[in-house]
Design a protein around this nucleic acid. Structure first.
Lengths: 70, 70
DNA sequence: ATTGATTGTCATATATATATTGCATATTTA
DNA sequence: TAAATATGCAATATATATATGACAATCAAT
């Protein structure tokens, strides 16, 4: 439809916190590591449910984690 | 996987603002009215892209619009 | 009462988010 | 420097978000 891109700083925040591996976060959220990998690489457009779970486990707001670019 | 529910106040905010009809908001966001209807009825788990577009056009934060309940 | 606009909802089709398995490459740690 | 762990990324399968078209129900303004 539009060519706007969804970006996130999941990987950045996860690494900064040095608390979970990609696989651990995936497990906490309830998705596979591959799905988390694609989300972190900004190659997916995840559902709000997954985003809310990531936000919860990383303890940062949705708005801080996800945004739009043109 | 889990039985947690995603809720939103899209309809509430839209009606309060008295600015767009369901169909107009759908068009602005780039989805069909039916999709917007299901989102407003909390029967869908929309993608973050759609959520960000709704948030943008209603001019409220993601965190204010979407949350989780157990 | 009737018309027009808005909304709820159905049934079917398509696109894509997510799962599964597997393997190669980094990165860390002993 | 080897072994263990973490990450990136294929290919294919499945579940579900979204589209399409249509119609009934609700509500507002005649």
């Amino acid at each position: 439809m539009n060519d706007l891109v969804i970006r996130n700083r999941v990987k950045l925040v996860r690494i900064e916190q040095d608390k979970h591996t990609q696989g651990e976060l995936a497990k906490l959220v309830g998705v596979t590591r591959q799905t988390m990998n694609l989300i972190e690489a900004n190659k997916y457009n995840p559902t709000i449910k997954v985003c809310l779970l990531i936000s919860k486990h990383l303890e940062v707001s949705l708005d801080h984690l996800f945004w739009m670019e043109e």
